[in-house]
């Protein structure tokens, strides 16, 4: 287990390094920040001194090493727009993003878990077909479209919820529901097939042959095993939610990291963009590391290797 975790930790570090490198390359490809940032008509001397100030007149390798070192310390420079450290601007938006993503996952586990179980336990019935059709629909519906529809109907027409913003449960409801539609659908479909696989296992027959109560068989012998692949799925979903937060947060005016990145791109506030992307990448990698830990808890064959 220790070796397994160390290995995963190494992989996580590599993944973060990869993201840092891509961010570095992309920002260099965006063009000369001096030309982008200084007003048109700046003199060559002004441009040169600005470049020296930013350190972008040095060799690329040096710049890269510098960038890495600063990234490790969480220093992405100062936000042009807010005139304070970019990482601060991003970090204070992180709780909102996490709140939304974790609500969507929790709701997804609840709804999707229930739906997947119901479908698997009612194989070959109209109920199974109905639940699975809903799930397919839920997975296929684009998030931004669903978000807009929910806003139009529940917020604009009915006025039950605010159209955007954050702060109360009522603000959270629509965006969480929008994201949970996708997560529930994914979890329901995976759990259904996973339960169907487990039902065929010999140890389920053993559990029944022991005369155990149906709920004991269900919880400890079927669900307990069927949930193992779902843990992996939650890690993937968390990544999609974070990556997709740019869209949802924009649709619902949710003050999270995704929205701050979009706003920063609009005003070419690159330090904030970089810090935001890094923040999301690190969170994603951390969540997947936690999922691996959870995997070890769920499956002793991995824990005791």
């Amino acid at each position: 287990m220790i070796r397994f975790l160390l290995g995963r930790l190494g992989e996580s570090a590599l993944a973060v390094l990869g993201v840092v490198t891509i961010v570095f390359i992309v920002t260099r490809l965006l063009g000369d920040p001096a030309i982008l940032m200084l007003p048109v008509g700046a003199t060559p001397e002004q441009l040169a001194s600005f470049r020296a100030e930013l350190g972008i007149d040095r060799p690329l390798v040096v710049q890269y090493a510098d960038f890495l070192w600063n990234a490790v310390r969480g220093d992405f420079g100062r936000s042009f727009q807010h005139n304070r450290p970019a990482i601060e601007v991003v970090a204070e938006r992180m709780p909102a993003t996490l709140e939304l993503a974790s609500s969507a996952i929790a709701l997804g586990l609840l709804i999707g878990g229930g739906a997947g179980m119901i479908a698997a336990m009612n194989r070959g019935t109209a109920l199974e077909v109905f639940v699975m059709l809903l799930a397919l629909l839920g997975q296929a519906t684009p998030v931004f479209w669903l978000g807009l529809m929910l806003i139009l109907f529940f917020a604009v027409d009915l006025g039950w919820f605010p159209t955007g913003g954050a702060g109360t449960f009522w603000h959270l409801a629509l965006p969480a529901l929008t994201l949970a539609t996708f997560t529930s659908a994914s979890i329901a479909r995976l759990l259904r097939s996973s339960v169907i696989d487990v039902l065929r296992e010999d140890y389920v027959r053993t559990a029944r042959a022991k005369g155990l109560l149906p709920r004991t068989v269900m919880v400890w012998h079927i669900a307990r095993n069927a949930l193992i692949p779902v843990a992996t799925m939650v890690g993937i979903l968390a990544g999609e939610l974070l990556g997709g937060s740019v869209i949802t947060e924009t649709v619902f005016a949710w003050p999270g990291v995704g929205r701050v990145i979009i706003q920063a791109i609009e005003v070419k506030d690159f330090p904030v963009v970089q810090a935001g992307i890094m923040m999301i990448a690190v969170t994603f990698v951390s969540i997947n590391f936690l999922v691996d830990l959870l995997y070890g808890v769920l499956d002793p064959r991995i824990r005791l290797r």
């Binding site: 140890y203 559990a207 012998h221």
Partner: peptide, 21 residues
């Protein structure tokens, strides 16, 4: 009756026990 008055042993011991308990 099952497991109480009648006990069962199945063919494949590798797959007949629950791997996570």
């Amino acid at each position: 009756v099952r497991g109480g008055q009648i006990g069962f042993v199945f063919q494949d011991p590798m797959t007949s026990l629950n791997p996570v308990l």
